[in-house]
Amino acid sequence: MKWFFKILALSLILQSFQFSDTNESPDLITSAQLETKKLEIQNYINSFSCSESGGCNYIAFGSKPCGGPKTFLVFSNSVNLVHLQEMVKNYNEMDNLHNIQTNAISDCSVPLPPTEIKCVNGICTIIN
């Protein structure tokens, strides 16, 4: 009977330990992956020209370690806004994960959104 309790106690102790594979790690986001995504978004935006009548807009871009965007992208209102928002959302999530994975730090300043954007020679341009 003593052996039964010893074996029972040992099995309970062993079950309380959780074994994990130390080789498992989340997919690391690299700077190269971020740069590729950024270029993809910029190329998409640049494939649309603006006109005075069509106008321009902006979107928050990137993720600062302290929170908030790193910058703002300007774009022509002729883009597919839903598609652009999805691309930027995915980039921002990747950038945030990269910040976490690399323990990134920043100055925690908050960039201000553009106050004036104009179409200059078919390109949306921040005036201020």
Rank of each mutant, 00 (worst) to 15 (best):
N103I: 10
S78Y: 12
T71E: 15
S76Q: 12
G62F: 05
N92F: 01
S76V: 09
P69Q: 08
S49P: 02
L84I: 07
V74S: 05
T22K: 13
Q18D: 03
S11W: 11
Y91V: 07
A32E: 15
I7L: 15
Y58L: 03
D107I: 06
Q42W: 04
S11H: 02
I59R: 04
L14Q: 07
C66K: 11
S78Q: 10
E40N: 07
P113T: 00
L28S: 08
D107W: 05
V74C: 09
P111G: 02
N43F: 03
I100T: 09
F75C: 04
L12A: 10
S63I: 01
V82G: 03
T102G: 11
G68T: 03
T30D: 07
E52S: 09
H98R: 15
P26D: 09
Q18A: 07
E93C: 00
S53P: 04
S31C: 02
V88W: 04
G67S: 09
M94N: 10
T71N: 15
E52H: 03
I45F: 13
K89N: 14
F72W: 08
A60Q: 15
E40G: 01
I105E: 14
L84V: 09
S63P: 01
P69T: 10
N80F: 07
F72R: 09
P69G: 07
T36L: 15
A9P: 00
N103W: 01
T22M: 10
E35K: 07
S16N: 14
N92H: 08
Y91Q: 13
P26Y: 12
P111R: 04
N92C: 06
S106K: 08
S109A: 05
S11T: 11
D95R: 15
Q101R: 05
I13P: 00
Q33G: 00
S49W: 04
C56P: 03
Q33T: 02
A104H: 02
S53W: 00
I41L: 14
Y58R: 05
